[in-house]
């Protein structure tokens, strides 16, 4: 995902001299080409994220179109107030980019898990929030960000993610992408967990449960219409995210369903609201926190069966 992002960004920078990339001293090997090809449009703010966000606001207020870049929580939480006051309040054309969304930095530990970022960025006024599901969605979301500008937050996975989409995708701001239709269960996914969600759907098929997958590369603005329509069309809606259960996709979908007064059962599959001290790589941690395909399958199947049992009792 990271490489797709930088390829797209450099291509845009070649034709747009106002586009500026600022890193807070991270991206070794990743930002090098951009820095070499477009040195006048590249800045290293130093290990100084507040400075990076403030610089970005200043450059944007003078006509620049700025992307700030760092890993995990450094470009978001470390300088949250600069994003809120200097970027959002001024509608500055700044896109904050974090690589390593969720637990992508695995064994580096708790400090490097970006697991509350979506909730916090989503709460900021005027902030578009994107968490593309695979490299193809990264390209599509970036196309929109380059056209529509910031304030925006782009959460990337890391590198080496499988491209889930078999066809080219479009993801204009505020849209979601259905990967299948006609099932009895809807699996809503955001961010790089999409691959696991698709694998879980394949496993559910073995259980005789047809599960549709819909990817939400945009958390804000949220594509609410398909959620409201899903309320009447599916027996169960599940949300899956590599993020705290507080404030992310599950919360957003719950808000929509609650306001629609839909009775459709919802299961939110996410990380518990606790600090995570387990050590391991991303795949291990996903397993430990039940975000692996088998765990997703089990939880969806159990909820569906419980709901069916309840429904038959009521009858």
């Amino acid at each position: 995902m990271r490489d797709r992002f930088f390829a797209g960004l450099l291509a845009a920078a070649l034709v747009d001299p106002d586009l500026v990339l600022i890193t807070a001293d991270l991206g070794f090997g990743a930002v090098d080409e951009f820095a070499a090809v477009r040195p006048a449009q590249f800045l290293n703010a130093g290990v100084a994220e507040q400075n990076m966000a403030g610089l970005a606001a200043g450059i944007a207020l003078a006509g620049g179109r700025v992307f700030t870049y760092s890993i995990a929580n450094f470009p978001t939480l470390r300088c949250l107030e600069q994003i809120r006051n200097d970027i959002c309040y001024h509608h500055a054309d700044v896109t904050v980019v974090a690589v390593g969304g969720g637990m992508a930095y695995g064994a580096l530990g708790m400090s490097h898990h970006a697991t509350e970022d979506l909730a916090i960025m989503r709460a900021l006024p005027g902030m578009a929030v994107a968490a593309p599901g695979d490299p193809a969605e990264v390209g599509a979301v970036l196309t929109d960000l380059l056209a529509g500008g910031g304030p925006a937050y782009l959460r990337l996975g890391k590198t080496g993610e499988r491209t889930v989409h078999t066809h080219p995708v479009d993801a204009p701001r505020g849209t979601s992408i259905p990967l299948s239709h006609g099932g009895e269960v809807l699996l809503c996914s955001t961010g790089a967990i999409l691959d696991n969600v698709c694998r879980a759907a394949e496993l559910l098929e073995l259980d005789g449960i047809r599960a549709d997958v819909r990817s939400f590369p945009w958390l804000d603005p949220l594509d609410t219409l398909p959620i409201r329509e899903a309320a009447g069309a599916y027996a169960l809606i599940a949300t899956v995210e590599e993020h705290s259960i507080v404030g992310g996709l599950g919360s957003a979908v719950a808000e929509v369903l609650a306001e629609a007064a839909a009775g459709t059962p919802l299961v939110r599959i996410a990380l518990p609201n606790q600090s995570m001290s387990v050590v391991g790589d991303q795949e291990y941690l996903r397993g430990a926190y039940e975000l692996d395909p088998e765990s997703i399958r089990r939880r969806v199947r159990n909820h569906l069966e419980a709901h069916r049992g309840l429904a038959s009792q009521i009858r």
Binding site: G54, A57, G58, I59, A60, L61
Partner: peptide, 8 residues
């Protein structure tokens, strides 16, 4: 920081 951005 914002002033530095404007100056840069």
């Amino acid at each position: 920081p914002v002033g530095a951005g404007l100056a840069w």
